[in-house]
Amino acid sequence: MQASVKWVDGDTFIGHSDSGHNVVFDAGSDSAAPSPMEMVLMSAGCCSSVDVVSILKKAKQDFDHVEVKLSAERAETAPRVFTKINLHFVVTGRGVSEKHLARAVQLSAEKYCSVALMLDKAVEITHSHEVVEREAK
């Protein structure tokens, strides 16, 4: 895997992946885009969400909405690394099994999510979840 990051202007940069995608980063106070640390946090949420969605589909759960709400704490002084991250999954559907969701989150946390597993070596990562029952139409 390869990528490049080019400075645009001020505190704005554009990352370019070897798969041909561009991402804007902004490290300044006038942020026009997510900061690098926000991108790391969102990457952990996306990576784990991919796993949870895949596992719930395999378990034939009837869901139509998955959101992971991310919260993080950072060190007070430089380098301002993450010290804690929580991934809170909210799954909306009809009759979604809390047991299946808990297992999906656990499998992602312990086995599949490469981003969170990499971060877990230096950051306290916790997971939580809830099922929201979709109302009948």
Results as ranks from 00 to 15, higher is better:
41 L>S: 05
66 V>M: 05
35 S>G: 10
24 V>M: 11
22 N>A: 12
41 L>Y: 10
25 F>L: 14
28 G>C: 00
30 D>G: 15
25 F>E: 06
49 S>M: 13
66 V>D: 01
45 G>C: 07
22 N>S: 14
62 D>V: 13
35 S>M: 07
14 I>D: 11
17 S>N: 06
34 P>N: 07
19 S>T: 15
13 F>V: 02
23 V>L: 15
13 F>W: 14
16 H>E: 13
60 K>C: 00
50 V>C: 04
41 L>P: 06
29 S>I: 15
64 D>H: 15
23 V>M: 14
30 D>L: 06
38 E>D: 09
42 M>A: 14
55 I>E: 09
56 L>M: 07
18 D>C: 13
59 A>R: 10
58 K>R: 14
21 H>S: 09
21 H>E: 09
57 K>S: 14
58 K>Y: 01
22 N>M: 08
25 F>W: 05
45 G>P: 05
48 S>M: 12
26 D>M: 00
39 M>E: 06
31 S>Q: 12
39 M>D: 06
51 D>Y: 11
60 K>F: 02
39 M>R: 05
61 Q>D: 03
19 S>D: 15
13 F>I: 10
45 G>Y: 11
48 S>I: 13
41 L>R: 08
65 H>L: 13
56 L>T: 09
55 I>L: 12
61 Q>G: 04
10 G>D: 06
17 S>Y: 09
21 H>C: 01
29 S>G: 01
19 S>F: 01
22 N>R: 14
47 C>T: 06
29 S>R: 13
39 M>S: 14
27 A>I: 05
27 A>H: 02
12 T>E: 14
18 D>L: 07
30 D>Q: 14
24 V>K: 14
